[in-house]
Design a binder for these strands. Structure first.
Length: 453
RNA sequence: GGUGGGUUGGCCGAGCGGUUAGGUAGCGGACUGCAAAUCCGCUUACAGCGGUUCAACUCCGCUACCCACCUCCA
């Protein structure tokens, strides 16, 4: 039984499919105006763990992740660069997928782009107009009438009669009936340049929230199981998605909402606007691997703020080495009873609202016992755990380097020296090999080599 | 002002009303020609002040500090 925390009810609840054996999941994806930073990837890594745990429990998954390729920032970027919007966003779409691969994040089933779904969005806006919950203002934009949707605020648990007003609500928003009303369709402006689509309300472009409502319902149905994103999307983005969808269909939009806490840097939220961010590329250039970064991102509970630090990446490297050394000894066959017990602890942990720190603890208990009692028969358990973690059998990045001939020669010489118990020569050769970047280990079975770092 | 979350050992990071989290670092021991790896043990952590309780890091109250959201944001 898989339990998760639902932001809507603020309780931990069992997650089970509304229909059949498949969980339908919508995950808010990137706005492709720049390279995503590792704070963004914390959310995608969390969603990856979520979909893996769903599958771990024998359920099927259908995940949709949108690509926001039209909004203020993408338009500004494209026009500033003097290129077409689609050309501008393509660079960052490609980079995004490359980064996901580096982090061993499983691909979603569908990646709809906003610009490919303008007709669906127009149809949804039209439906809201027909129902009288939307209106066109004098500036030509279409807004959602928040007062007409009784459930508004149910996700964020905000009481709108008791709010401070005017703080961040721009003074030029007087064309809206209510400050809380949000744009469904934005009328074309000079600064939009060539970007725009014709609609029943004139030339313009979709509002920020409408794409998610339109595309999620297109691919997952009017009511589906799960919707996730960063905690900063809870309000207003997700609240508005609910309003748009439920006002249009009259049905429950999403059963369970999950939100991931932020990655912090020196105690503060990592964000583009604050400028305190690292992209995946930044870290790879510093010599850290996608595998190590993944380990750090998933090794804290997703609802807890995680403070990013380079020391954590160093710790990750050593912890992964420890796992690797143990797994290298593991073999197929029937798992010992103690290994099965650790697997059960692991399963209990991931099913308890994705408690990955506890899951890792179970993994390390397995490592300790396998090192002490023998790793025979434990390979299957490691593989089973890695269906969720995706960090052990990370083939695209494990360093399996061929031994250079030079090192091999030194190793052979050392074997000779050791045969005649010439320890001084043995140690000298070991130092020489070390200088070439390899660590020699001696055991009953002879020498073995490990690449340093 | 409203709402939510947090403050755990050198660092990172779980957790529960009473029993070892885990990683990483450090110390001691075993093993080893010496190392490395591994195993064993240790260093008796829970912001402060009250309260409830046989028992509180865990529940309640207050105080301090921190973070996030309140229409850009994973």
């Amino acid at each position: 039984m898989m339990n998760v925390y639902n932001s809507l009810t603020r309780r931990v609840e069992e997650l089970k499919p509304l229909e059949g054996n498949e969980i339908r999941l919508y995950t808010c994806g990137p706005t492709v105006y720049n390279f995503a930073h590792i704070g963004n990837f914390r959310a995608y890594a969390f969603e990856d763990i979520l979909r893996r745990v769903i599958q771990f429990n024998g359920m099927k998954i259908r995940q949709v992740m949108n690509l926001t390729d039209v909004d203020d920032k993408t338009i500004r970027g494209a026009n500033a660069a003097g290129v077409a919007l689609t050309d501008y966003t393509k660079t960052y779409k490609d980079a995004f997928f490359a980064d996901l691969k580096k982090l061993n994040i499983q691909p979603a089933e569908v990646y709809p782009a906003a610009t490919d779904h303008i007709p669906e969005m127009i149809a949804l806006v039209q439906k809201l107009m027909d129902k009288g919950v939307a209106y066109q203002s004098e500036d030509g934009s279409v807004y959602f009438k928040v007062r007409e949707f009784p459930g508004y605020g149910k996700l964020a648990h905000i009481d709108f009669d008791n709010q401070r007003t005017g703080l961040r609500c721009a003074a030029d928003e007087y064309d809206k009936e209510n400050v809380g009303d949000f744009a469904l369709w934005k009328a074309w402006e000079e600064s939009d340049g060539p970007v725009g689509w014709d609609s029943p309300w004139g030339r313009g472009r979709p509002g920020w929230h409408i794409e998610c409502s339109a595309m999620s319902m297109k691919y997952l149905g009017e009511t589906f199981d799960l919707h996730t994103g960063g905690i900063d999307n809870l309000f207003p983005h997700h609240e508005n998605e609910i309003a748009q969808a439920e006002a249009a269909t009259g049905k429950e939009f999403v059963r369970t909402w999950m939100h991931c806490a932020h990655l912090r840097v020196n105690g503060e939220k990592m964000s583009k606007s604050a400028g305190n961010f690292f992209t995946l590329r930044d870290l790879l250039e510093k010599g850290y691997t996608g595998r190590e970064i993944r380990y750090v991102l998933i090794n804290a509970h997703y609802r807890t703020g995680l403070n990013f630090a380079f020391t954590a990446l160093e710790d990750a490297r050593k912890a992964l080495d420890k796992i690797d050394r143990c797994v290298a000894q593991a073999t197929d066959g029937e798992a010992p009873e103690w290994a099965t017990k650790h697997l059960q602890d692991f399963a209990d942990a991931v099913n308890d609202d994705l408690n990955l720190p506890r899951a890792f603890a179970a993994l390390f208990e397995l490592v300790r016992d396998a090192n002490g009692k023998g790793a025979a028969g434990t390979l299957g358990v490691f593989k089973r755990m890695d269906e969720v973690l995706g960090v052990i059998f990370f083939e695209n990045e494990k360093k399996e380097e061929a031994i250079p001939a030079e090192v091999k020669a030194l190793l052979d010489a050392r074997a000779e020296a050791r045969k005649s118990k010439n320890w001084a020569e043995s140690d000298r050769l070991r130092d020489e090999i070390a200088a070439l970047g390899w660590t020699v280990k001696d055991s009953r079975d002879g020498q073995s080599l490990e690449k340093k770092g």
